[in-house]
């Protein structure tokens, strides 16, 4: 460690790391398009949330639940009252799609709210304290990791009971493992860095060091994981709702596919098509965004790619 040469992986001085990452992200037109797409979906989800609560507050049947057999199976027509058509009970497909977006965002956010704190906290503790703490946490996550994922999620949902809570807990309580591993490895790397030693020398407590010093330096791991977990959670929710274990009595993308599947055989193609496109769009956007973010934020890739 004598006269170490200046580290080559540092960004050029003059720009903050965050600004540097943002600049890199902006350079990729694809990433910007994805970001915009995510924003559109988020707006849709917010709108859906508004509609949901407005009608609940008014105690009226919301339009996406309104059944009207006289207008059922209407093909999509952009100029009509139902631009994306209606389903077998005459409910508006577009409105239901918006509600599906609402559910998808709820699932993506709620599962992250469960998985990220668990993964980050356990990863930090294991990585920083090492020793017995590390042994116990590694034991916990290797146990979780050895249980077949989807089945585990479904089993949790089964025990918790049908409905959104089962989806949140099932996905949230199983998907922290990967993040925990990453965070642990990163914290281990950082805990012997001189800036951490300096903080210890100044008399900072371990938790202050973990959360104020180390965590901000490894937060890119959390952000990238979040972007890549979000679409995966949405996919799992669709799957669970489709099987009847997830969302009950509300339009979600999974329940929509479930009912559209049978109608597809009667030639009612639009419900299936639009749901598929909606899922495809958000998942693709998040996946590409996650890749772009990883390239922009992960210093390891910075050196190897240039």
């Amino acid at each position: 460690m004598k006269s170490a040469p200046l580290e080559p992986s540092k960004p050029e001085p003059g720009i903050s790391l965050r600004a540097d990452a943002w600049r890199r992200l902006r350079k990729s037109r694809l990433a910007l398009v994805c970001l915009a797409l995510v924003a559109v979906y988020a707006a849709m989800a917010l709108y859906g949330e508004g509609v949901y609560y407005w009608f609940q507050y008014q105690d009226r049947t919301p339009p996406y639940q309104l059944q009207n057999l006289s207008v059922r199976y209407q093909a999509p027509n952009l100029l009509s009252a139902h631009p994306l058509g209606t389903d077998g009970l005459g409910r508006d497909v577009l409105q239901r799609l918006v509600q599906g977006t609402r559910i998808a965002f709820r699932v993506g956010l709620a599962t992250s709210m469960i998985a990220i704190p668990i993964g980050v906290l356990l990863g930090c503790l294991a990585g920083y304290f090492g020793g017995k703490t590390d042994d116990v946490i590694v034991w916990i996550y290797s146990t979780f990791a050895s249980i077949p994922g989807l089945l585990f999620i479904l089993a949790i949902a089964m025990v918790v009971g049908r409905g959104l809570m089962g989806v949140y807990l099932g996905i949230g309580l199983t998907t922290w493992v990967g993040l925990c591993r990453l965070v642990r490895a990163e914290v281990m790397k950082h805990r012997t860095r001189p800036y951490v030693l300096a903080a210890r020398a100044l008399g900072m407590g371990p938790f202050r060091i973990i959360f104020n010093h180390i965590l901000p330096n490894i937060f890119h791991v959390v952000i990238v994981t979040f972007t890549l977990r979000f679409p995966a959670s949405i996919g799992t929710e669709v799957f669970m709702s489709f099987l009847g274990i997830g969302v009950q009595g509300e339009p979600s993308w999974g329940t929509m596919i479930s009912s559209a599947r049978l109608r597809l055989w009667q030639g009612i193609w639009w419900e299936m098509t639009f749901v598929t496109l909606a899922i495809f769009g958000i998942v693709l956007a998040f996946n590409l965004l996650g890749d772009a973010l990883r390239d922009a934020l992960d210093p390891r890739l910075r050196t190897s790619e240039s």
Binding site: T276, V283, N287
Partner: peptide, 22 residues
Amino acid sequence: SVALMSINYLVWIVAGQYWLAF
């Protein structure tokens, strides 16, 4: 590859069963 990843599993199944089989 990314596009394939982004298509939900369900869609593959439903579409495949409908067109290719039915």
